[in-house]
Write a protein that binds this DNA or RNA. Structure first.
Lengths: 369, 369
DNA sequence: CGCAGCTCAGAGAGCGCTTTCCGGCGCGCA
DNA sequence: TGCGCGCCGGAAAGCGCTCTCTGAGCTGCG
């Protein structure tokens, strides 16, 4: 590694911090408990518990007294103790289930650099924060890790799961359902399973892109597909082919990438080499479209004059691209929020039916097409 | 909202799921406990506990028997119960402390779309995963939210905190130290505090950029700074000015943005308007540099021939930019990992001295300068 | 052969909380 | 004025685990 970290100390090492450390130990060992509050308020633990948890049937006067005592002692309920008895963790897990490949990359770089991830986190947090539910982040690659996760979850690690499955042929949705763990997926499961999910009408989105391209007058439209086994990619490809077929185009040249910018660039190069007369491309996500733009630029093609490009997702990459990408808006934040709400409802009532919510895509016209 | 979600059901609503629901209830209510394992193995709870926790002083034969019983029952320790007695949560919190502005944005979009965030998550997770520690994600904006977080933390929500403070003048570092909560920052605190942190030698990085620009023969170098009160931005600006001064440039034109692409574009436009003869720019982060590139392109300037641009961070935006950005590498993943290791050590031994680790930046030469 | 000194398993106390069960008190109705 | 019912607060039983303390059984030395 090029960087050589230098370690320094803000004060002399080997020395003990005088006040804070001692106080700390004391503070840790003696945090106010329900008992303390009860003593101060002159009532029983049970009453304090009822007040703190907002159970009615408590005299208003006592109510006031108790809250005053809570403030006075600085009491904060102990989550572990509470979970132990309620069997609720007050936590929801965001699980990213990927294939094992990223085990090679120590920093899982590709995964978290994709704007996709951040958008989902933002959406999930937007509904969790107001209700005071915590978010745990889990990343599983290998099959044993999936089994371990299910064990941890059953045992109460989290009350439910928002699942992001990037791994085609993922066993996790099945495992979760089987274990009776509340779960909602963002994006449909790769194979049908009795699990709730929120998804985008990907086919319709692809059709929107095709419409735009053909309306512009494109005659020779190509496709850059995503990973073959990923549902979102499959649906976009299918939507593209269907829409093209409906307009009379029985076949279109295509290449596939893996949703990264580099793969899009390479795919575009291959496409261009095989079909130099292309005048339009639909790319299955923005990151690859951004790469395609680079390849197009290098090949001396002007976008959109020579070749029009439509991406998918309307991620930050779309606006950052040169020229800015015309793309299909994928309201991921909204969808992740929706999924989280669905999950919360399901945690509340486990008997709730498995439901799907499909969002409609919208075309965002910028300069690339 | 343009998207109109349609709700559908995979089976008829109002109906109860036959098997799974019942089993689920049963499964939930009767998960194997230590007691069960003990009964199966024919030993006491204490012994099972010792075996499971790897305490020695256990007869090898019993060891085997107990593990067999664990497998047979499918036992998984209950985290809440364990935390309750050990006073350890087995969880680390990644806290993003921002100003309140994002409260306007329901999806906290800007925050999580920045590649910055994902890189930190990747780094933290890379060290947490192998040791089986969970990651909790917390976002705090308002001052009361900070106080609430500290309460939750003290009470055992997490064993320690990796803090990402984006809010100049943030009270959180102080609050954490005061409460005796183990914490390590990624990026130095805005004002000196007895808290460990991992940072980049930002000034040195800026100097690297200046060197590159001047070595190219740039004569009129401008600066696009970041938010005034953010330490990383301050240090980069200071480093830039010092390096320029050392080369004899007493003053350089500058504009400031807020680390977003749009703000970089606007800043570049202002800079260009005021100083049309600029032939080089140092931009305090890649996102803004990407925006600057757009403004430059619009103004008909060729990069790097007319104006050379150096960014900062070597984020994914740098490679995606057109042309790819020459930039200063900020090994965020490595740094976040380092911070996490520091935190883990501190949790293990709270008496450990407060330490700082400063990484050295490296210039990554691409095409923009 | 006896006893100190060791190793190792079990008993049991409690971590801080929720919640059921009860008992006491006050009110309404006869 | 007496009885029953409803309301409200307290006592106490755990939730599942860890860990100290105790004691049983063994070895080794006097």
């Amino acid at each position: 590694m090029a960087e050589s970290p230098q370690t320094g100390n803000l004060s002399r090492p080997g020395e003990r911090v005088p006040g804070s450390a001692g106080e700390r130990g004391a503070a840790r060992s003696r945090l106010p408990t329900l008992e303390d509050v009860a003593r101060v308020a002159g009532v029983s633990r049970a009453t304090v518990s009822r007040v703190v948890n907002g159970v009615r049937n408590v005299d208003p006067d006592l109510h006031t007294t108790v809250w005053a005592a809570v403030d006075a002692t600085g009491y904060v309920p102990n989550r572990a103790a509470r979970s132990l008895v309620t069997r609720r963790a007050g936590t929801v897990a965001l699980v990213v289930s990927d294939s094992e490949e990223h085990d090679d990359d120590p920093f899982l770089g590709r995964l978290f650099t994709d704007p996709f991830f951040g958008r989902v986190v933002g959406g999930v947090l937007s509904v969790l924060r107001p209700v005071g539910v915590q978010l745990g982040l889990h990343l599983v690659g290998s099959p044993p890790a999936r089994v371990r996760l299910v064990g941890d979850l059953r045992q109460g690690q989290a009350d439910g799961v928002v699942l992001l499955s990037l791994h085609p042929d993922d066993a996790l949705p099945g495992l979760l359902v089987e274990a009776g763990i509340a779960a909602v997926m963002v994006g449909r499961p790769a194979r049908p399973a009795p699990i709730s999910y929120v998804d985008l009408a990907n086919e319709a989105g692809a059709a929107l892109a095709v419409e735009r391209l053909l309306a512009r007058g494109c005659q020779r439209v190509g496709l850059i597909a995503g990973p073959e086994h990923v549902p979102a990619s499959q649906d976009r490809v299918a939507g593209f082919r269907q829409a093209m077929a409906r307009r009379g185009y029985a076949w279109s040249p295509s290449e596939a990438g893996n949703f990264t910018r580099e793969s899009g660039e390479a795919a575009m190069r291959r496409l261009l080499a095989a079909h130099p007369d292309l005048d339009g491309v639909f790319v299955a996500n923005d990151l690859m479209a951004q790469g395609a733009l680079v390849a197009l630029h290098e090949a001396g093609r002007r976008v959109p004059d020579d070749v029009a490009v439509v991406g998918f997702d309307d991620s930050s990459a779309a606006q950052a691209a040169q020229p800015p990408l015309t793309t299909v808006r994928h309201p991921l934040e909204v969808m992740a929020a929706e999924a989280t709400r669905l999950l919360l409802a399901r945690i509340e009532d486990p008997q709730l039916r498995v439901a799907s919510v499909i969002h409609d895509p919208v075309l965002v016209v910028r300069r690339s097409a």
